[in-house]
């Protein structure tokens, strides 16, 4: 017995998706429009704003910083997050149960409070270099994603395979690299990608830690937007949306996007 969904609900859903995707189409229109303000009805098209991105050095420089920070922060977080996720999944009895929650703390504590506290204690209190403080902040920010996503992969991993390798004489560290790691590869890739995009888009932590000479792309965009309206911002936004599309394609290939609804 299958009941039809009420037409009013379907109409509402269509409108909601229009609401969700419309603004992104507006950005695309704004980036391609040859008028500085997007007017209705639309005028001619141009790629001038895209070209403009590469003429504003603040954008190209912060793009590089953001990219390095996202790769570095995520790599650092994975490097310590994978062993932690492994320990949590493998040694359930030996570790206290609260430990799993410790790695979720960066989500629980408001990001902006974390940014402020890092600025106060590290950058200002200890005088740590800007880039190092940013790296620590971003590694913390993405740690929950690394531990949770890799952990989800490990929870469906059958540890008796690893035991089999060990009992046949394979050293434990080698069993980890040749047996465990290849089996959780999808989780690592997906976790890396989600963490990367989170770090790339971060505002609340970076806003306190960027300083003279060092800034990230979102912070630069924010500062630019507050001062004047420039369609170059729309062009940068379109580039960022391109990154999102690439990321979604990778997640779809590795885990399937339905993974995100679980």
């Amino acid at each position: 017995m299958k009941r039809k969904t009420h037409p009013a609900l379907i109409a509402f859903t269509v409108l909601t998706f229009f609401f969700l995707l419309g603004p992104l189409v507006v950005i695309l229109g704004s980036a391609l429009s040859d008028t500085p303000f997007l007017t209705f009805p639309p005028q001619g098209l141009t790629l001038h704003w895209f070209q403009n991105i590469f003429e504003i050095s603040a954008f190209t420089r912060t793009m590089g910083t953001s990219f390095m920070l996202a790769v570095g922060g995520t790599a650092l977080s994975m490097l310590i997050g994978i062993p932690a996720a492994y320990a949590l999944a493998r040694y359930r009895v030996e570790l206290p149960s609260f430990l799993g929650n410790v790695f979720v703390l960066p989500i629980l504590i408001p990001e902006i409070v974390l940014g402020f506290s890092l600025m106060k204690s590290l950058a200002s209190g200890l005088g740590t270099p800007i880039m190092a403080t940013l790296l620590v902040g971003h590694a913390l920010l993405v740690l929950p994603y690394c531990v949770r996503v890799v952990g989800a992969s490990l929870n469906s991993f059958d540890f008796s395979i690893e035991e089999a390798a060990v009992s046949l004489g394979c050293p434990r560290w080698r069993a980890f690299f040749t047996v465990v790691l290849p089996n959780i590869r999808a989780g690592i890739i997906a976790g890396f990608i989600l963490a990367f995009i989170t770090s790339l888009n971060d505002v609340s932590i970076s806003i306190f830690l960027t300083g003279p000479g060092v800034s990230t792309l979102p912070i630069q965009l924010l500062a630019h937007m507050e001062q004047f309206f420039d369609p170059t911002i729309a062009a940068v936004s379109v580039l960022l949306m391109g990154v999102t599309v690439a990321v979604m394609a990778v997640v779809e290939r590795t885990l399937g996007l339905t993974f995100l609804t679980k």
Partner: peptide, 11 residues
């Protein structure tokens, strides 16, 4: 639904 979610807050 995922596409806007993965697009940054500033954008």
């Amino acid at each position: 639904a995922v596409f806007p979610l993965l697009t940054g807050v500033v954008v």
